[in-house]
Design a binder for these strands. Structure first.
Length: 484
RNA sequence: GCGCGUGUAGCACAAUGGUUAGUGCUUCGGCCUUCCAAGCCGAAGAUACGGGUUCGAUUCCCGUCACGCGCUCCA
């Protein structure tokens, strides 16, 4: 039985993982802040991805691009053109229509630009230039009758576009409109030649990036599953046409197995291949990695075969040559691209849900996050069994100072030992080190493991080595690997 | 974006058109205890925001915001 979302949200807030954004002002819809523990968990997720996708591989380079890019990038990619149609909703039958599909509709727009205002009859289709240049488009005309139910219950037309716009420069002049990137991928495409050239790369190779993206979604959903501002982990893998299907299968398997490696239960994961009519315009094939969330199956990551769509589009738009010269065959071609694209926030949420467990220990409830040690926000807690004994506290302080050189570590003496253990269980701390009176005699401390609650006496000067073996070198939680 | 529902302390809940809004957990201080949420004493802490009805609103009404569920949408 999976944890209820409410329960998880409550724990996230109570223990400093995730807060509602701008909470004291009443909240900001679909925006969330990561608290002290959440920020550690999230960074660990990023690092785990980067480790698997860049550090451990010989064929992928990293990059970090600016969120603001030349506006033409998004025209070339198709993001500006799509979803710029004005849409109307029928309040009666709840249908939604493109305004220009509703009969007898002629719209007028008030366009503010260059400090002045002019009114134009532009018709239902808004040219992208107007959309780009206009600070504000007012709909002065409006359709009235719903084509489905015939009732005069249509809302005023509204522009529907997922791109966030903002202005460069302090004056809101029309010429300064730019977009907040809706995906990180375009940064890799426009830097393809920079990375290939400076890193002296031959095909195949990939460019990976982790960063924020922004989508002005109509509908938000389920906690941090869909937010307006979110973080992506994307990699564009450039390869020779003809080898693309093999690489596609490689990356689908590789990405699915990554989730197993960090402990997501096999039965809560599935691969789903997109039907042909479901594919995006640039996409030839696509598999989603899906997780069985409390609210149903949801997409964690998409592995898409983008063909040569993006590089070709950028070549056409800029006139630059982004083809690859293959020295072995002495030919030029446009690389094909395989793109695994994952959401950091969704992945964080998934790890939290999958790790959450409630048990009964000695007739007492225990809540525990069974996070992989590499992901746990706090790696080790140092606890004194007797806080009144100065020698014991002294040893604890010495240990925690030493541990902090390697990992996030905490010291806590504000409750009885049982409660201290439960506190750490609830935030997923994999190991607790407890110093007691015997420690003063035998030079050992008790190491208590989170999942089994088993204890082991370890020499004080062996603790760092002991914990390193279990935290840094922690094996995959799920050994099973999937072939595609 | 539509419909339905919800909003009381950090968390989970209770109560009420009228005295000081109650309980558990949590947190903090103290005593005691010392290897799995023990006990005792004490403390801090709330009616989402705005308006209306009323002598009086946390309670009734309206709006806003946020969250949940369903639909819709979705690169």
């Amino acid at each position: 039985m999976a944890v209820q979302l409410d329960t998880l949200i409550s724990l996230c807030k109570r223990r400093g993982f995730i807060f509602q954004s701008s909470e004291i002002y009443g909240g900001m819809a679909a925006c969330y802040d990561y608290g002290p523990l959440g920020v550690e968990l999230k960074r660990n997720v990023r690092n785990a991805w980067w480790r698997a996708m860049v550090q451990e591989r010989a064929d992928v380079e990293g990059i970090e691009c600016s969120i603001l890019m030349h506006p033409d990038v998004w025209r070339t990619s198709g993001h500006v053109e799509n979803f710029t149609d004005p849409l109307v909703d029928c309040k009666s039958c709840r249908g939604r229509f493109r305004a220009d599909h509703v009969a007898n509709y002629r719209a007028r727009y008030r366009v503010s630009e260059n400090g002045g205002t002019r009114e134009e009859e532009l018709g239902p289709e808004i040219p992208s230039k107007v959309f780009r240049d206009a600070q504000k488009i007012d709909f002065l005309g409006s359709p009235t009758h719903c084509p489905t139910c015939g009732n005069a219950e249509l809302t005023a037309p509204r522009l529907f576009n997922l791109l966030f716009k903002t202005n460069v420069g302090p004056i809101e002049d029309a010429s300064s409109v730019v977009f907040m990137r809706p995906e990180t991928a375009q940064g890799m495409f426009v830097n393809f030649e920079n990375v290939r050239g400076t890193m002296r790369r031959k095909l195949p190779f990939g460019i990976a990036q982790i960063g924020r993206s922004f989508r002005n979604e109509i509908t938000t959903k389920a906690f941090i599953f869909r937010t307006l501002e979110f973080e992506q982990m994307e990699m564009e893998f450039f390869c020779k046409p003809g080898t693309d299907e093999e690489w596609y299968r490689h990356w689908v398997a590789e990405r699915f197995n990554w989730y197993l490696r960090y402990g997501i239960r096999r039965e809560n994961l599935r691969l789903r291949q997109h039907d042909k009519d479901e594919l995006a315009h640039y996409s030839r094939m696509c598999h989603d990695v899906e997780y069985n969330f409390p609210m149903g199956w949801g997409e964690l990551e998409g592995i898409a075969h983008r063909g040569d769509y993006d590089l070709s589009a950028h070549m056409k738009a800029t006139g630059k040559d982004l083809q690859y010269f293959d020295p072995e065959t002495n030919t030029k071609y446009t690389p094909y691209v395989i793109e695994p694209a994952a959401g950091v926030d969704r992945t964080v949420m998934t790890f939290l849900i999958d790790a959450y467990a409630e048990e009964t220990v000695l007739d007492r409830p225990r809540t525990v996050l069974r996070l992989h040690p590499a992901l746990a926000p706090i790696k080790v807690a140092v606890l004194p069994l007797l806080k009144k004994r100065g020698e014991i506290v002294e040893i604890c302080q010495r240990l925690v100072t030493a541990f902090k050189q390697h990992w996030p570590a905490v010291y806590d003496d504000t409750a009885a030992i049982g409660k201290l253990y439960r506190r750490q269980d609830e935030v997923g701390t994999p190991y607790c080190v407890t110093v007691d009176v015997d420690s003063l005699e035998d030079g050992k401390a008790t190491v208590r493991e989170r999942d089994t609650m088993e204890q082991e006496r370890i020499e004080l000067d062996r603790l760092e080595e002991y914990l390193t073996e279990r935290i840094v070198l922690a094996p995959p939680k799920v050994e099973e690997r999937v072939e595609v």
